[in-house]
């Protein structure tokens, strides 16, 4: 196939690597990943607590520690997300890509279709991209960006119930989000459901990252570690820019 048809010399002449993800983006990615794992695990145990603790209440603070971990990780995730938005303005154009869907761009939609075909085994070869491929961008923008926004807003609305009326968390989030959903229990249910959406996202995200690393025409996992995108062939890239 493609790689098979290339000679070793051609491979040596592959395009030079491109510096895609700057340090703040990479750092955010891995901190965010860690936070999401902590949030999912602790969040699950807040909804379905561990078996009861024996002895005196004063000897334990298990639920307290689980909730503390959840709230701390939530704060780190929220602040990290704000920083990530800030970096979208400050960083290179790849740092902006995640936040903007080029929905009016016909070429981009064709790209989405082509990648979908590639994943449905209907085409022989994926396109080649410096940034995110269109299908990945669509998926990450909808699930990750909006999922995170949803979880930050509903999360702070629930947290504000504990800090109480008058606290900024309550005034900014709980005071309007809780009535918007109906009542507190509804916000809990939606916060819980979207956790599962994010878990589904993680399963797919990790799988396709590995798969792309092996089967696509550019590097994937190492790029999120080093920031450099490398390529497996020297033909033209398909990014719009």
């Amino acid at each position: 196939m493609t790689t098979g048809q290339q000679t070793e010399q051609e491979l040596y002449r592959s395009e030079p690597a491109v510096y895609v993800y700057e340090a703040p983006v990479r750092l955010w990615h891995w901190i965010n990943a860690l936070c999401v794992i902590v949030l999912c695990v602790t969040g699950y145990f807040i909804g379905s607590p561990l078996p009861t603790m024996p002895g005196e209440a004063s000897d334990h603070f298990l639920m307290g520690y689980i909730r503390f971990a959840h709230f701390s990780a939530g704060y780190v995730l929220a602040i990290g997300f704000l920083y990530r938005i800030f970096w979208a303005f400050m960083g290179n154009h790849h740092a902006r890509q995640l936040f903007i869907l080029p929905i009016t761009n016909r070429h981009w939609w064709k790209g989405v279709l082509h990648e979908a075909k590639w994943y449905a085994f209907l085409t022989k070869e994926p396109h080649k991209y410096i940034g995110h491929n269109p299908l990945a961008l669509l998926f990450m923008h909808v699930m990750l960006v909006w999922g995170t926004v949803f979880m930050i807003f509903t999360g702070f609305a629930l947290y504000g119930e504990g800090t109480g009326m008058g606290s900024w968390q309550y005034e900014w989030f709980s005071s309007w989000i809780i009535p918007l959903f109906g009542q507190s229990q509804d916000v809990h249910t939606w916060h819980h459901l979207v956790m599962w959406v994010i878990i589904c996202f993680i399963i797919i995200h990790v799988y396709v990252a590995i798969r792309e690393d092996i089967m696509s025409r550019q590097s994937m996992i190492s790029t999120m570690v080093s920031g450099w995108r490398t390529f497996k062939d020297n033909r033209a890239v398909d990014d719009e820019s």
Partner: peptide, 24 residues
């Protein structure tokens, strides 16, 4: 409840992923 709905969705996604790995 949310856990049953979510875990079912995650199981479906997980199974589909495994199937996709095999196909790939």
């Amino acid at each position: 409840n949310a856990d049953k709905v979510g875990a079912t969705a995650a199981a479906v996604v997980g199974t589909a992923t495994v199937a996709h790995i095999a196909a790939s």
